[in-house]
Design a protein around this nucleic acid. Structure first.
Length: 544
RNA sequence: GGCCCGUUGGUCAAGCGGUUAAGACUCCGGCCUCUCACGCCGGCAACACGGGUUCGAUUCCCGUACGGGUCACCA
């Protein structure tokens, strides 16, 4: 008895499809539970757009009491990066994305969660497709295929690609194919598409609604020459066996849905629901384009870490893009966990959003404003140890000094300061508190001349134990004594009677003590600086 | 080029046949105030275009334009 073509193609013993159905049974889900997955290929760092779709996947599953898992799509060994999967998982974790299954290869009942470890599984279905005549080996070389495409282009073919009469290997007899295999020719396995150029398929996209397209007619590659499946085939097999209910992926996959639908059908699988999320765009001379790893530093999530944007800020911003209902919800629930946000595809935009750093900055200021001085200081230290070691070593010598600094206008304030967007700004923001970083400048406000400024400093007497009212009262008295109005209002009412007002006097003191014209509350700043240092800095300018 | 998706202020966007076309960010005024920041009040600014359908279109249909995606043994 001679070998069938299928046996020749797949000579090793394989389980049956029924075995696999048993091994990976339908999931026991609560009513409405959705199963989603994030399926990255480990080609290096995490892209902001990937984080975005991962977020949607997690939100969808968790919000429905379903399952969110990670599947590593390492079917392209040419692009694979060593350790890529582990890096990805860690990056995701930083952003609060933690899959229920697939944190490692065998983490879960539907293991392995790494496609390169599932070769046998794909082969089971590939073999049975060959047996039914729905797939066939193709011996065309990449040169031949390139020539074919060239000719199609030249002839203005109605439909390019490997199909119909262009599909040279499609009608090879089993004997012919067997002979080529015996001769050692390498082969890929292709779908024998039943597609008809005239026919159309309609399907429902969760974010875009009904979409109608021509059916697939291409004899797409299912298995590459190395026996590893293409994305398309792996998608059908894995998402069926791993019982994914909702395939949420980026919009570039939309065009291949007809192929995917055909694959699900020929394999006898029920297709999942699809949601194609739009890409994050970037504006470039008047046009929009996808955020690019190569051209846009902010495309890699690591950029945000380096700049010192809290992961929460990035997440909050992404949520704004992801759902038009998020900002309102957040205003109504300022402290709620993001996972409590009632996510729905209905509120997702079908058009691509421009990534907007200005908006991120605003969101981030809000996130940081909600932190206590202590927590903020801790985050900054962690950041600095990684990205500004000089600053970190300075901070390390000062105990909880940074926490005290950051507590100003923050801890216990009804309207905490919203002026820090990222940790990398903090060094400049607090530099005058540290003698190591203090620049000793003495800028003068426009309204005060140097002579008057020195006079103010010579007469000012700072007392470290004054409470805020005493402290300001002293400055008021000093102002009046030197010919300044006790309040800006008095000054406005009769400006010719004064040299200026308390504000000008305070400005001079502020400048001497901090080297700046603008700072948080001066009284609090002086308290943190300490009496000795404040007096010393004033004396330094005023002289003896 | 074929196919598909998209198009409301500078940006994110609500809207789902009749609205003075929300809101947020940015920007500009003002208030508050010892400065800054916050906060508050106010302002600038939009339905890509052309045809239909309709008593009535931002909304529905068809074109056009523009933008994006896709046509691999990459995902």
């Amino acid at each position: 008895m001679s070998q069938t073509l299928a046996e020749k193609l797949f000579p090793n013993p394989l389980p049956s499809a029924a075995d696999l159905e048993d091994r990976y049974p339908p999931r026991q889900l609560k009513e409405g539970g959705r199963v989603t997955r994030f399926a990255p290929s480990p080609t290096g760092f995490l892209h902001l757009g990937s984080l975005y779709t991962a977020l949607v996947n997690q939100l969808t599953a968790r919000g429905s009491g379903g399952v969110f898992y990670l599947r590593v799509e390492d079917t392209d060994k040419k692009r694979e990066v060593a350790g890529g999967a582990a890096d990805l998982l860690e990056s995701l974790r930083v952003f609060g994305i933690v899959p229920d299954e697939g944190k490692s290869e065998n983490d879960g009942k539907y293991a392995p969660y790494t496609q390169s470890k599932r070769a046998e599984i794909y082969h089971v279905f590939a073999k049975s497709l060959v047996e039914c005549g729905l797939a066939y080996p193709c011996f065309c070389s990449s040169d031949e295929l390139a020539q074919m495409r060239e000719k199609q282009e030249k002839d203005g073919a109605v439909q390019g690609g490997y199909w119909g009469e262009w599909a040279k290997c499609r009608d090879l007899s089993s004997e012919q194919a067997a002979a080529k295999i015996d001769a050692g020719q390498s082969w890929t396995l292709r779908l024998r598409s039943g597609g008809d150029l005239e026919k159309r398929v309609a399907f429902n996209d969760e974010v875009r609604g009904k979409i109608e397209m021509p059916v697939n007619v291409l004899d797409a590659v299912l298995l590459k020459a190395d026996g590893i499946p293409t994305y398309h085939f792996a998608h059908a097999v894995d998402d069926h066996l791993m019982r994914t209910t909702h395939v949420i992926r980026s919009e570039e996959w939309l065009a291949s849905v007809p192929l995917h639908l055909e694959l699900f059908r020929v394999c006898g699988f029920k297709p999942p629901k699809y949601a194609h999320v739009s890409a994050l765009l970037k504006s470039e001379n008047g046009n929009k384009r996808k955020l690019s790893k190569r051209k846009d530093p902010e495309a890699a999530v690591s950029w945000f870490a380096r700049e010192g944007y809290p992961a929460d800020s990035v997440l909050e911003y992404l949520m704004c893009l992801l759902s038009s209902a998020f900002e309102d919800w957040r205003r109504a629930n300022p402290a709620a966990a993001r996972s409590d946000f009632p996510f729905t595809f209905k509120k997702m935009s079908a058009s691509g959003a421009l990534f907007d750093l200005v908006k991120l900055t605003d969101v981030s200021k809000g996130v940081i404003a909600a932190l206590s001085g202590g927590d903020l200081a801790e985050n900054i230290l962690i950041w600095a140890r990684e990205y500004d070691t000089e600053f970190a070593s300075i901070l390390q010598n000062h105990g909880d000094y940074l926490a005290q600094i950051l507590a100003i206008d923050r801890d216990g304030a009804k309207k905490p300061r919203k002026d820090i967007a990222k940790y990398s700004e903090v060094r400049g923001y607090v530099s005058y508190f540290f003698d190591e970083l203090f620049d000793g400048e003495f800028p003068l406000p426009d309204s005060v001349c140097k002579e008057d400024a020195l006079e103010i400093l010579e007469t000012y007497d700072y007392r470290g134990d004054d409470d805020k009212d005493e402290w300001f009262g002293r400055i008021r008295q000093l102002s009046v004594a030197l010919g300044y109005a006790a309040s800006p209002k008095d000054f406005k009412a009769n400006s010719s009677a004064y040299k200026g007002h308390v504000g000008d006097v305070s400005a001079v003191i502020r400048s001497a003590v901090t080297g700046r014209l603008n700072t948080p509350d001066l009284w609090a700043v002086c308290r943190v600086l300490g009496e000795a240092r404040v007096r010393e800095r004033i004396r330094r300018i005023a002289g003896e």
